[in-house]
Every structure is written in C-alpha cells, then in structure tokens.
Design a protein around this nucleic acid. Structure first.
Lengths: 125, 125
DNA sequence: TCCATCGTACGACGCCCATCGTACGACCCC
DNA sequence: GGGGTCGTACGATGGGCGTCGTACGATGGA
C-alpha cells in the first residue's frame, strides 16, 4: 500500500451529495464553534489545516466538531502528511440547496463583524 | 382598558430588530417542528392562527415552539379574539441578515418536497 | 350566565450533545 | 531509529432542550 492510499483511507464518512440533508446542515451550523470554523474556511484563500484554526476548545472537542461538519456534508477533509486539510463542499451544497451556503456564510460574517464592533465599542473610553 | 389593549398586552417578548441574533435564528430553524411551522406561515397567503397548523406535537409543546420562534425574531404574534395569529418578520430579518430568510425557506421547501417524493416513491407498487 | 375552545404556566422526565482528560496510532524530521 | 506533533478513540460528565400532562386564565358564543 502506498502512502497516498494510506492517507486517503484514514478519512471516512463523507456523505454523498444526494444524501446531504438540511437537518444536518442546520444542526452543524447552529453551533458557534462550528460556524466559526466554516467562516475561517470560507474566508481563507486556500484549504486550511485543522491545526491552524482559531478555536476555543480542546483538540479532542475540535475533532468532534470537524467530524460533525464532515458528516453533515459541509466540508471535505483529506490528509496531507500528518495534518488534515479542510474545504467547503460548495458545489454539492449548491446542488442540494441553492444559495443556502452563501446566505449562511454571509450571515455568519455579518454576525462576526457585529461581535467585533460591539467589542470595540466596549473598549472605547 | 379596551379589548384591543388587552389583546396586545397578552403578547410579550418580541425582540427588537436590532437584537435579532444569528444564533437564535439558527437554533429556532434547526428544529423540524419549528421549521415546518415557518414553512406553513411562509407558504400561506395570509397570517395563520396557531390552532390551524399541522403539527405533530401537543398543544403545550406547540406553545413552546411558537415562543422560541417569537423570541428568535422569526415570527411576530398578535391576538385576534382567542386565537393567536402569526407572521414572518420579513423586513426585520432582511435588515439583520439579507437574503437569509429566503434561502432558509427555499431550502426547507426543497427538503419537504424531497420528503414527499421519497414517501410517494415508497408507496409505489 | 354557562360552557366550550384556545392558549399558557409549571413541573417532570428523558435524551442528546458539547466538553474534557487521557491514552493511543500515524506521520514527519533530525 | 527516536522524539515530537497531529489527530483520534473512548469514557465520563454536566447542562440544555424537546416532550408531555395537568391545571388554569381568557375569550367568544349559545
């Protein structure tokens, strides 16, 4: 078995595009940590490694959240060496629920911007 | 105090448009019963009374779901006699998160259509 | 006035989920 | 080969939420 094969085999549980359900998408997106993860992936120019995320939970909890995102169909994961890369499944989601992902990301960005604004305002003299 | 005043006073807890948060919107929409309620309101030509909804839970549970929807800012409620009417807060939501409500409703309708399709298919000979 | 209906309040219950700590396997680099 | 890093697995735990039953207030009609 080649190294490439091993790397591929280490990932499981990506649902087919046809099996993506709104229920799982919303459950996944309703959690603040996962929403932040999706935002960071969406706003990054390239695919992002798990370790480079700015999250406020333990590694094991992080693993849990990435699994939920993967099983919901929101993200696709693949190994590069020891680090796991993440991408949004834009095409599959567009096919399943057109316009939904863009609207969710836009809303999440707006939410984050509002949070930053509130924080800045509270720090003013 | 007039009857109209009493009717108004009997409703509480509508958040201001500026206080609508994505967190609450998503939590509200992530529940299947509440999602079905929002769909029925969105697809009805006029405002809908609580009692006329097709929901699969008890009245008391229904009250709970309507309260969550109201406190999230998704719906506005007002009394007409003894029955409570429901409307989507389209304008306020559009201001808070442009395009989000339409995308969510479209996705929910698509989800419901898929569920109907699956059911019909399973009933074929 | 009396009753039927609509919605609410409150308490109870059960389940699911986010979180963590620890131990382990996989991989890269020296 | 050996240590260090990255991610996972597993069990435990605590809290929150959906659900219900029952009892109660408000309204409208007979």
């Amino acid at each position: 078995m080649t190294a490439a094969h091993a790397a591929v085999d280490r990932i499981g549980d990506h649902p087919d595009a046809a099996d993506i359900t709104l229920q799982r998408i919303l459950e996944a997106f309703a959690d603040p940590v996962r929403r932040s993860i999706v935002r960071q992936i969406a706003n990054a120019p390239d695919d992002t490694a798990c370790g480079t995320f700015d999250i406020s939970v333990t590694r094991s909890t992080g693993t849990h959240h990435f699994r939920v995102l993967r099983q919901s169909g929101l993200i696709r994961q693949y190994y590069v060496g020891t680090s796991k890369m993440n991408t949004l499944r834009r095409d599959d989601l567009e096919q399943a629920f057109p316009g939904l992902l863009d609207a969710l990301i836009a809303a999440a960005n707006r939410e984050a911007a509002a949070a930053r604004g509130a924080q800045d305002a509270s720090q003013e003299p």
